[in-house]
């Protein structure tokens, strides 16, 4: 599927959208905190009609065996979960969900990721009395917390606990084995042109550290910054992980700047494996570690390719 890397990631949206988010962040946080408390009581009982407006949340619910609770999903979720899309209503894109479409489904809970656009949407849903839950998925620990909360809301606590334990186990295993190998300097490219990379403070950045590497783009000071190619060439990563979805093969594209290939390895990675802050971070970390340390033996038990 084309461009799925970025569709999974809100933050790769253009700079302006992000500026707006930064700008309003504290004010919105305040509002969200207040509304979370208001919703706490209603969310105790497990929900029965859920609308998910984010592919990562949809994936978590499906994995926890709560897919049958879903009555509506966004377009990107629908593309990633074709089977589910046959059964439930699609209520619009990530940035333009249809208020009318959601309300018509009479959900008792709408789950979403608090991006600038969806925060506004949350306020409009609350105004018509529909319960909402926001799930930030910026950091690694956020994702684990999301699995736990969704498990509770969907009445699937044991499944959630099991998933979290599995992820924590892989994390501990990777961190232990990392001590033996050196940490390569890496840049992860989400999109080639315009060039977007994984910056500091994102769950992927956390996973890079767990997998035993140093993310050079952390210095750019944004979770998913737009970088210049000159910065990339000068940064001279030892591993360049290319997750762009375009048809041009990675060697042909990056061959324009021979120094990149001469100084480091260029690895193409299917973005769907690592860019979804969803239920399978354990597999994502293993993929990443395999790409970063092809010689290291710690891929025990991990399938060799494309497990989804």
């Amino acid at each position: 599927m084309p461009t799925s890397a970025c569709r999974n990631l809100f933050p790769a949206w253009p700079a302006v959208a992000r500026r707006r988010r930064d700008f309003a962040a504290w004010a919105i946080t305040l509002i969200s905190v207040v509304s979370f408390h208001a919703l706490e009581a209603r969310a105790e009982a497990s929900a029965e009609r859920v609308v998910s407006l984010a592919p990562s949340l949809t994936a978590i619910l499906v994995t926890l065996g709560a897919g049958d609770l879903l009555v509506g999903i966004d377009e990107v979720s629908a593309r990633q979960q074709p089977a589910l899309a046959q059964r439930v209503r699609v209520v619009g894109g990530l940035f333009n969900p249809s208020l009318e479409g959601v309300v018509a489904l009479e959900p008792d809970l709408v789950v979403f990721v608090p991006s600038a656009e969806q925060r506004n949407f949350q306020q409009r849903l609350s105004a018509v009395g529909i319960a909402t839950e926001a799930f930030s998925n910026l950091r690694f620990e956020d994702v684990l917390e999301n699995i736990e909360r969704l498990g509770r809301l969907a009445g699937r606590e044991p499944a959630a606990r099991e998933r979290i334990d599995a992820i924590r186990a892989v994390r501990a295993q990777l961190e232990a084995s990392n001590r033996a190998v050196e940490t390569p300097r890496v840049v992860m490219v989400l999109q080639r042109d315009p060039l977007f990379v994984v910056g500091g403070g994102s769950f992927i950045d956390d996973m890079i550290a767990i997998a035993g590497a140093r993310n050079l783009a952390a210095e750019l000071g944004d979770a998913y910054p737009r970088a210049s190619i000159e910065w990339l060439v000068a940064a001279a990563p030892e591993v360049l992980i290319d997750m762009d979805a375009s048809h041009e093969p990675a060697p042909a594209y990056w061959g324009r700047w021979p120094a990149l290939g001469a100084r480091g390895r260029i690895v193409h990675l299917d973005p769907s494996l690592v860019t979804l802050p969803g239920p399978h971070l354990d597999r994502a970390m293993q993929r990443l570690a395999a790409a970063l340390h092809p010689m290291a033996p710690f891929e025990r038990g991990a399938p060799p390719a494309g497990a989804r």
Partner: peptide, 17 residues
Amino acid sequence: GLADGSRIFLWLIGNLS
């Protein structure tokens, strides 16, 4: 879609990268 959206944004504002 999202990725195409960022490209369109850059087109509209003018960009040589």
